[in-house]
Amino acid sequence: MKKEARLLKGKAVASLLLSIDHFNRLSDVGRVESVLILMDHSFEMLLKAAILNAGGRIREPREVNTIGFDACVRRGLSAEGFLSDDQALVLQTLNGLRDAAQHHLLELSEGQLYLHAQSGVTLFRDLLWDVFGENLATLLPERALPISTVAPIDPISMFAEEIEEVRRLLAPGRRRHAEATAKLRGLAIVNGALEGEFIQPSERQLSQLGQKLMLGSSFDDLFPGISAVSFNAVGVGADVSLRITKNEGIPVHLVPEGTPAGGVIAVRRVDELGFYNLSHGDLARKLKLTPNKTTAAIAVLGLKDDLDCSKAFKIGRTVFQRYSQKAIERIQVLIDTRGVEDFWAQYRALQPSHRRG
């Protein structure tokens, strides 16, 4: 391992240990902020160590400073390939909460703080083993608990209880808006981070969430990002693990780099047939291409393997390939940059009958 990577990994472990220490300490003074800030720092150091270990770079050419947290996650997802979409969602959520804790106001219930801290420790343990082949348990002091020996509550039940508490706080005769807003803020930040948005919710937005809740809106309607993931706890005692994963069938989209207040990826709960709303014929008509040349563009771009652009649906014994609006954008760029005849010739050259002739 390169010396710089080894030093960064050491910094990562040190910050994680401090985060665990602050979680388990008796004093509540600055506890939430300390846990989140130190854990966020531990992951930035670990990601940079992993990038260097994979032969990547953590500095852009002619830049003095190293890349930031988002850029590390992007490289871990793409260039270096050591992160999964689910792991990136956990990192993005932690980073969004850290941002709010460091730059504004954030109040989390004990259940929420446990949820994010335990999922963070689980992810750190997974990455340390997968990338470096090291067991986190060997780096912890014998007296240290890796956040908590027992999960305080099932995550889904915790969220349901928090929403019911907000309803009680906003009920006629109580109207404790400040407390209700504080509870909604943490949920809104997590939901935004999962949807690829790092936007601090305004007082007006939080008030609107409360109004919708009192009018009968469900948790799924108010927080679709949270509803699109699952919280899976396994193990007992010091071996407890908590992982956040996207629900089956729900796509994750890469947020374009440079998007204002944008994260790295976004999970969206969508009607899949509404998302993939184009047939092959629809695609050809909108692009003003023949069916054969549309097929050629799809093949050259590999759109059938890109879930942002296409998905196969089986109805009975028949399989239908459907396409999203993103497919139109991708093919149009291909037409504009290469021209129809160019990619048509490439496609024909790859066909067996054409090669034989």
Rank of each mutant, 00 (worst) to 15 (best):
Val35Ile: 08
Leu145Asp: 15
Asp282Arg: 04
Asp28Tyr: 15
Leu289Glu: 06
Ser27Thr: 13
Ser202Val: 12
Gly81Val: 01
Pro256Glu: 03
Gln332Glu: 11
Thr259Tyr: 03
Leu16Tyr: 08
Ser78Ala: 13
Thr337Cys: 09
Glu110Met: 03
Asn95Arg: 05
Leu89Arg: 00
Trp129Arg: 13
Lys326Ala: 14
Leu187Met: 10
Val240Thr: 08
Leu140Ile: 11
Lys288Trp: 07
Leu16Lys: 07
Ile250Val: 03
Pro224Ala: 12
Gly68Ser: 09
Pro61Thr: 10
Val166Ile: 15
Asn135Thr: 06
Ser157His: 08
Leu47Asn: 01
Lys246Pro: 03
Glu165Asn: 03
Gly56Asn: 06
Arg25Leu: 09
Lys183Cys: 01
Ile315Ala: 13
Lys11Glu: 14
Val234Arg: 12
Pro291Cys: 06
Arg167Cys: 10
Glu203Val: 12
Ile199Glu: 04
Asn95Val: 00
Gly192Ser: 09
Ala49Phe: 00
Pro155His: 14
Pro352Asp: 13
Gly262Ile: 08
Asn53Arg: 14
Met1Thr: 12
Gly56Lys: 00
Met1Trp: 03
Cys309Ala: 15
Thr93Arg: 02
Arg25Phe: 09
Leu38Gln: 13
Arg204Ala: 15
Glu4Gln: 13
Asp85Ser: 05
Gly281Asp: 14
Ile226Tyr: 07
Phe23His: 08
Asp21Phe: 04
Gly173Lys: 11
Lys11Leu: 14
Asp282Gly: 08
His104Trp: 07
Gly96Leu: 04
Pro146Gly: 02
Ala160Val: 09
Lys11Asp: 14
Leu350Cys: 12
Ala284Tyr: 04
Ser157Asn: 11
Gly357Asn: 14
Val300Glu: 07
Leu209Gln: 11
Ser157Arg: 09
Thr93Tyr: 02
Glu197Thr: 10
Leu273Val: 06
Ala284Ile: 10
Asp282Ala: 07
Phe132Trp: 11
Gly10Asn: 14
Ala137Met: 05
Ala297Tyr: 02
Pro152Ala: 15
Lys311Gly: 02
Met45Cys: 10
Arg75Gln: 15
Tyr347Ser: 12
Gln118Met: 05
Val264Ile: 09
Leu242Ala: 06
Asp70Leu: 08
Gly55Glu: 07
Ala297Thr: 11
Gln112Glu: 15
Phe313Trp: 05
Gly274Leu: 05
Gly81Phe: 00
Val32Trp: 06
Cys309Lys: 01
Asn247Glu: 15
Asn232Val: 10
Pro141Asn: 09
Leu303Gln: 02
Val64Lys: 12
Ile58Phe: 09
Leu16Met: 15
Arg174Leu: 10
Ser84Val: 00
Gln325Leu: 12
Leu52Ile: 04
Pro224Ile: 15
Thr122Leu: 01
Met1Ile: 03
Phe313Asn: 10
Glu179Arg: 13
Ile58Lys: 01
Glu33Leu: 07
Leu170Ala: 03
Lys9Ser: 08
Leu115Gln: 09
Asn95Cys: 02
Gly68Glu: 14
Ala144Leu: 12
Ile331Lys: 08
Ala178Gly: 09
Lys314Cys: 05
Leu187Pro: 02
Gly186Leu: 06
Leu77Pro: 00
Leu184Thr: 10
Arg243Trp: 01
Lys288Glu: 11
Leu26Asn: 14
Phe23Trp: 10
Gln102Lys: 08
Gln112Asp: 13
Ile163Ala: 11
Arg74Ser: 02
Arg268His: 11
Gln87Tyr: 01
Ile153Ala: 13
Gly133Asn: 12
Gly30His: 13
Leu289Tyr: 11
Asn292Ile: 15
Arg322Gln: 10
Leu127Ile: 05
Ala233Pro: 07
Ser119Arg: 01
Glu161Asn: 14
Gly263His: 04
Asp130Glu: 15
Gly225Asp: 02
